[in-house]
Design a protein around this nucleic acid. Structure first.
Lengths: 210, 210, 210, 210
DNA sequence: AATGAATGAGAGTTCATTCAT
DNA sequence: GATGAATGAACTCTCATTCAT
């Protein structure tokens, strides 16, 4: 009664097709933000019919949630590994976290952008529980800070909670600036320089040391 | 029978009515984000009919733009004053900017939240030019950093652009954490403590000094 | 950003406009059935923009629910009055109910059609509670039958529940036939004849009495 | 490696597969109504892939039409046999029709439900011609009534057309009540009682005979 | 035959914006 | 100035149907 028509696309492996859609979603979310991207934008980018997205995902929200779920766990895992690494001091650990984020940013800028910009604000989107999952990363960093303060490696006159926010906030905006091409990283050397710059600022501040 | 047996709401001073709407808009934007707030939400909060908003503003975007325009200039002005203050060193200037933002946050958390969250992302909203206006503040801070580096007061091994982003990013997330009640500032003393904490972290880093 | 255009319609009294939409909804529901009628069909019939329907009703379901709620109570009220009328015997009461329905059918065929066809099947539509409200009428008739059986006025060898279903079912299909123009009632006399015919069949059956 | 190491479901006899789908369709149509059942619902119930349904049927409408066509003829045949049965009086014939329907209802409740609920409303579904086919049964019963009236066995003061509608309507709602479990028939004896009850009501009315 | 990926018309709903009152 | 009825573009989501495999 209803449909009819047009050139069908060759069927891919479902898992690949799913990835393809997720990839497109990440890119478009990063570019336009969750609210402004239409399902049809994702479809267009993925070069599939918009209806197909509903084969793989329940809703637009679910697409975003999947982006998060299928990437966040990996990140948190590495974060955890860093946090329990016996060979590193607390400052070193924070540096490693910073490096990790900036490294990820270089390889998956859009993904990091989406996770940071959209999921962390997902209370406004209606992704219950996602903010909590986000909280995990905060906890780990907070724990590193706490530990460092106890050991005397990190400044005691800094509230750990505030410190955690500062830490992530600083990194987040670097992400944003990076996405907006306010500064670029053209090669490995520049990437290392950026990492060092950020580490330096976070750990030792902007003031020149005597 | 002749006189003003006013039916509905008495007409306020137009400027007041406008402020009332802007006030409501700031609060609702801060709570729900620009995209998720409907004109009718603003109207409800301002206790006016939603049609009235179009007497004072051209569009929803224009409401947001007005929030920005009517508050940002003040902030930039103070920023400028700080940046040219001959009595302050560069580090001190950055500290003053940080204090300024945190102070503003305490008194106008919703406003700061909106400016930071929505306007800085306004490229996604369609507020051409607002990002540029935002850029002003970045320039000033960048200039302070540059100057400080030249004078040897600020770390030379930090890219000024990156530093600026870190600086604002750190402050932004403190704002967000504050809005989300992740940490609170109950009195003047706590406010001062927060300012000091942030200043310390920004200027001297999280690492304990020997 | 979005809308623009076209000739606005003069504002009516809201209550009138609501009625106008409900009227259109009843007609279209009766013609096409709930599922096949689109909101835009109702709007077209009411000669309003489809968006306006959402000013007055939450959803398509809510329109149907309103049709029911704003008409059913009246019917049940009259039904109740009949059922407690001390001057009537049980058979007379059933006759009166039949007359009531057929009378209503003549004056509001579409309304009766909708109530009978759509609401009684509303479990399939998702109008929880409406079926229960419907049950009220069944109860009243069942009570009349019970009472009549006790008094010896109505056949004892008829299950009251089954009888109630037969009774309403017979009337329902008369409604449907009426709507489908399978038989018509052109004037008061014919209406009376139809009432008598139905009453006769329900109370004394189709068999000729000796 | 050559032979039939069948991967998926073994191919059944095509006719069986078709029946299996129709069976599922009947059940699901009865439960949810034609409009609310999706092709995929039928497929799920039949435990086949939904695409397969299009091997056996042209469309969803066609499935419904097949339900009708492949069952209705049988019913009409029996109806006809009853109507020309020289051994029965007109009232007896009506009783036999009623018994027939109620008997069918007991053995194939879903089928009867679908035929009565969906096909009789098929003008709203787009099954041209099906209503006409339905009309056949009406004609037969109308003829019985006519004949009975002529012979003096059935009430003359009942319009035959109206009588036919009453007759089918009463039976239809009994079907509905039966499907909704508003009354049940647990064994043969209860089935006979129900038949008798209905026959009694239809032929002799609800009033107690002196 | 059988499967389910792929497609897109269609329908419901939201809400910025306009404008008669 | 103030109100809220009225409008329709835009968007999400559903699902019948097609067709490559």
């Amino acid at each position: 009664m209803r449909a009819s028509n047009a050139r069908k696309k060759v069927s891919l492996d479902p898992a690949d097709r799913r990835k393809q859609i997720l990839r497109a979603a990440i890119d478009v979310f990063a570019e336009r933000g969750f609210h402004k991207t239409r399902i049809s934008d994702i479809a267009k980018r993925a070069k599939v019919a918009y209806g197909l997205i509903y084969h793989y995902f329940d809703s637009k929200e679910h697409v975003l949630a999947s982006v998060f779920e299928e990437n966040w766990a990996v990140f948190v895992k590495v974060l955890k590994d860093i946090s329990v690494d016996g060979h590193k001091g607390s400052a070193e650990k924070l540096g490693a976290v910073s490096d990790l984020l900036i490294g990820a940013l270089r390889h998956e800028p859009a993904l990091i952008q989406v996770i940071i910009q959209e999921i962390s604000r997902s209370d406004r989107i209606g992704l219950a529980g996602k903010v909590d999952a986000f909280e995990e990363a905060f906890k780990i960093v907070r724990a590193i800070i706490h530990e460092g303060q106890k050991k005397g490696e990190l400044a005691r006159d800094l509230d750990a909670q505030v410190g955690t926010y500062l830490f992530f906030g600083a990194l987040e905006t670097v992400c944003t600036g990076f996405m907006l091409k306010k500064f670029t990283v053209k090669n490995e050397a520049e990437a290392e320089a950026l990492k060092k710059s950020v580490r330096r600022a976070l750990l030792d501040g902007m003031r020149e040391r005597p």
